[in-house]
Structures are given as C-alpha cells and as structure tokens.
Design a protein around this nucleic acid. Structure first.
Length: 129
DNA sequence: ACCATGACTAGAA
DNA sequence: CTTCTAGCCATGG
C-alpha cells in the first residue's frame, strides 16, 4: 500500500464501469483505505498525493465507483477542503455518511465536520510524500 | 465531434 | 471577509 507509485499525471483510460484499467481509481481507493478511523481528508489532498492535485474532481469521480469495489472504501471519510460532506447525496440513503462519521467519533454539524482542521489527515504527509 | 456537468481547488477580484 | 473565474478530465447527451 505505501508503494503508491506516482502515476503519470496523465492517468489515461480509466473506466469506472467494469473496466480493470483502474490505475488512478485503485490508487485513490488505496489511499482512502489508509485513512485512520475518526479522521478525514480532502479530495485535493488525495489528488496531491497522486501528483494530480489539479484534478481533484477525478478523485471525486473515483469515489463514484467506491461503492462497487471489493473491500469497502470508507468514502465517508473524504470531504471537500471546507470539511463539508459534499458527497452525502451520493450515498445510498443520504445521511449514511454523516452517520458513519459520527459513529467513528467525528462530529458533524449541519453537514460540516467539526474541528475539520484537527481531524484532517494528510496522505502526503502521513504516507511520506 | 461539440457542449454541458460534476463527490474540487486555488487564486483573483 | 465573500464571490467569481478558470483549470482539471471523464462521462453523457
């Protein structure tokens, strides 16, 4: 898991549907799985960890397929840079995200992570990038 | 093939 | 301080 080799910034041909070309996706999932319980991170941080910090959107898109990946991917620990649960509506019943976070000890107020800055887990720093 | 949209972000106004 | 703009890149009409 730490191997996280830098994928080329290009990261071409990534099909979330049924395809196995997931270089970017798999990497994203890998990082997300490393997020300690009770911590959260941002799309940009993950993107930066992969070297594509300008493409945070792709990280979010990758999360779109998080639900269909084998080991579970704690996508609920990934929020935007403001600590807002921007993707709560993409969960099965909306509210699952918040519920899971609270269950892990992360307080959520009005769809926003409380003390986000302290809860923030930087993959680049923690994984040594 | 072109245009619009999106689980984003950083920087400018 | 808040709001707007421009990049990012895959997907769908």
């Amino acid at each position: 898991m730490p191997p996280l080799k830098k994928t080329s910034a290009k990261l071409k041909s990534v099909k979330p549907s049924g395809k196995k070309d997931e270089n970017f996706f798999e990497l994203v999932y890998e990082v997300v799985r490393q997020i300690p319980k009770g911590r959260v991170t941002s799309y940009g941080a993950i993107a930066a960890c992969l070297g594509t910090k300008l493409s945070a959107r792709m990280v979010g898109w990758a999360m779109n397929g998080a639900g269909r990946v084998r080991p579970k991917v704690p996508a609920h620990r990934v929020v935007n840079r403001n600590g807002i649960l921007s993707g709560k509506h993409h969960f099965n019943p909306p509210g699952t995200m918040e519920k899971l976070l609270k269950k892990e000890g992360v307080k959520v107020k009005n769809d926003i992570v409380v003390n986000f800055k302290e809860r923030f887990w930087d993959p680049v720093k923690e994984l040594g990038f």
